[in-house]
C-alpha cells in the first residue's frame, strides 16, 4: 500500500482473514476452579494484561465465548458440567488446559478427580505448572493464536472435516 492510498487493499484467502480476526479477538470463558483461577486473574490484571493479546473480554456465558480456559482441578462431579459448558459454546471453540490438575489430574490421582480434561473434551493447548505463571498462560495463548492462524485447532479441523464430508455428499 502506498501512502496516497492508490492500492487500498490486500489480497488474501478469506479463511486466513477470518482466522486472523479470530486469533486477535478471543473471548475467554474463565472456568477457574482452584488456585490456577487466581493465577488466571493475575494474567487478566494490569501487570500481565491479557488484553495485549486481544483476549480481555471475559464472558461467563458459554454462548458468548470461544476460548475455554480450564484453570484448576475438575472433580468427577464437575466433569459433566464442564462438558455441558463446552457443548454450549459456539463453533469454532478453543480449549486451553491450564495447570497440572486440568491437564492430567496432577497430584490428585484419587477416586474423586478427573484424570485430565482431555478424557472429556478435546484440548488444544496444555499449559504446565502448579499453578502456571501468568507468563506461561500468555505463552499458551500465543501458541494457541498461532494454531488458530494455521487452522490447527481441534475445532477448526472438525469444521474442515465436516465441510469436506458435505462437499463429497453433494458430489462437488
Amino acid at each position: 500500500m502506498s501512502k496516497d492510498g492508490s492500492i487500498g487493499y490486500l489480497t488474501t484467502r478469506l479463511e486466513d482473514f477470518v482466522n486472523w480476526g479470530r486469533k486477535n479477538a478471543m473471548w475467554p470463558l474463565p472456568f477457574g476452579t482452584s488456585c490456577c483461577g487466581i493465577e488466571m486473574m493475575a494474567t487478566m490484571c494490569s501487570d500481565y494484561d491479557i488484553a495485549r493479546f486481544g483476549a480481555e473480554a471475559m464472558r461467563f456465558s458459554p454462548r458468548q465465548a470461544d476460548l475455554l480456559i480450564v484453570a484448576g482441578i475438575i472433580n468427577l462431579k464437575m466433569a459433566p458440567i464442564l462438558k455441558s459448558v463446552y457443548d454450549q459454546m459456539g463453533d469454532p471453540k478453543f480449549v486451553l488446559s491450564m495447570g497440572a490438575c486440568a491437564s492430567s489430574g496432577g497430584i490428585f490421582n484419587v477416586y474423586s478427580v478427573l484424570q485430565g480434561i482431555d478424557t472429556m473434551i478435546p484440548v488444544d493447548v496444555y499449559v504446565p505448572g502448579c499453578p502456571p505463571s501468568p507468563e506461561g498462560v500468555l505463552h499458551g495463548l500465543i501458541r494457541l493464536q498461532g494454531m488458530v492462524a494455521r487452522g490447527e485447532t481441534n475445532s477448526q479441523k472438525r469444521e474442515r472435516a465436516q465441510n469436506e464430508a458435505r462437499r463429497q455428499m453433494k458430489g462437488v
Partner: peptide, 24 residues
C-alpha cells in the same frame, strides 16, 4: 454423585476407583 457405587473412604475401596459420568 448419586449414581456412585460404593463408599470411597472405606479401606477396601480402591484408591483409583473412578466412576466417570458424562451426563449431569
Amino acid at each position: 454423585d448419586e449414581r456412585w457405587v460404593g463408599h470411597p473412604l472405606r479401606k477396601d475401596y480402591p484408591l483409583r476407583g473412578y466412576q466417570v459420568f458424562t451426563e449431569a
